[in-house]
Design a protein around this nucleic acid. Structure first.
Lengths: 186, 186
DNA sequence: CAGCGAACTTGTCAATGGTAAGATTCGGCC
DNA sequence: GGCCGAATCTTACCATTGACAAGTTCGCTG
């Protein structure tokens, strides 16, 4: 990372993406503005446009990077769905700035090739994990969708605060693991 | 519903809420504006403020009404979780304008008493339904969260377009029912 | 060292959310 | 019927935003 030298920032693209992810994680996907990110990075209000075009372009970059990180996180969890599913919830809660963008395609250009590639990679890894909890092969497609739904639903519910009333709210990852254990134990 | 008479609209509050729900269902939660809703209702841009205060106030009204409708829809589905869960997905997909607001509390005032009451009512009905698929009573709390997660996750995934690649996308309600049947059949 | 392209700036515009102050109408009460 | 307060809506204004156009600075390469 280069030094700021008065005119060229050196790594503005990275700085803006990081600031956007942090802002979205902090205060949802609405309370921030491109101009505020630019101010925080110490550049003029039009500088981000050079790298991302417009706001959707920035969020496309966030989604693409998010899916890549997501695929890595799922892959690192191994094959067992108990681990992959837990990693799913961990990513959602620890990187909510990415996660909240990724699953709101109205915010960005969902047909972006980099986004599509990352999504496909993550989807394949998740499906591989889900196959470890599918019983009857004839029901495999529905059981895979069910497995995806349960981890995605848990993540979304926690992020939306819906589980905060229970004791789940304080530490979502162990709770998710316990839920999966209870649900899928043989 | 009264006639528009040139100055007083007659039922502006209802018209604005309906227009907001429709706009959110059509184009996400970002592409609309208070001023456009006002134009569509044929009133000045400041008229909505009288009824809702600000944008968060309007969305608070949407969430409150949404939770009430949601509780009704779940209650009408009976006791069996197969039916309650299917109704959950049906509401999310057929009233996505309400649903997308309800589970994004950053958009509105989540501590609004009317919202809290509606949410509690819906939650109680859902929990009652979930109890029909809970086996061991010792695991009941986690199994209930799992049941909620699976229907919520399916709904969110479908709304985000993540299931469109499969044949699930064309008719989410039968697919959700089938998923629940496969998952919970005895 | 010339110039070429990338990175960034300044300036501008229409649109938005929000607020204040004024106009109009409604409903109840005499 | 007529008056008066309150609810409803309008006009006017402001700061902020996203987007765009045109100009400026910088690094790199030949």
């Amino acid at each position: 990372m280069r030094e700021i030298n008065g005119y060229h920032h050196g790594n503005l693209r990275r700085a803006i993406i990081d600031a956007a992810v942090e802002a979205i994680a902090d205060s949802g996907a609405a309370t921030w503005s491109l101009r505020e990110l630019a101010r925080r990075a110490g550049v003029s209000h039009a500088a981000p446009a050079h790298h991302f075009g417009d706001k959707a372009g920035l969020l496309t970059a966030v989604a693409a990077e998010g899916y890549a990180l997501f695929a890595d996180a799922l892959a690192a969890a191994g094959d067992d769905f108990l681990e992959v599913g837990t990693a799913y919830v961990r990513f959602a809660t620890e990187h909510r700035g990415y996660f909240e963008v990724m699953f709101r395609p109205a915010l960005y250009r969902a047909d972006d090739p980099e986004v599509a590639a990352g999504r496909a990679a993550a989807s394949a890894i998740l499906a591989r994990g889900a196959r470890t909890v599918v019983g009857d092969p004839g029901r495999a497609p529905m059981m895979e969708i069910a497995a995806w739904s349960i981890v995605h639903g848990f993540a979304e519910l926690w992020l939306s605060g819906a589980l905060r009333d229970d004791d789940v709210g304080t530490s979502p990852v162990p709770a998710a693991r316990e839920m999966l254990r209870v649900m899928y134990e043989r």
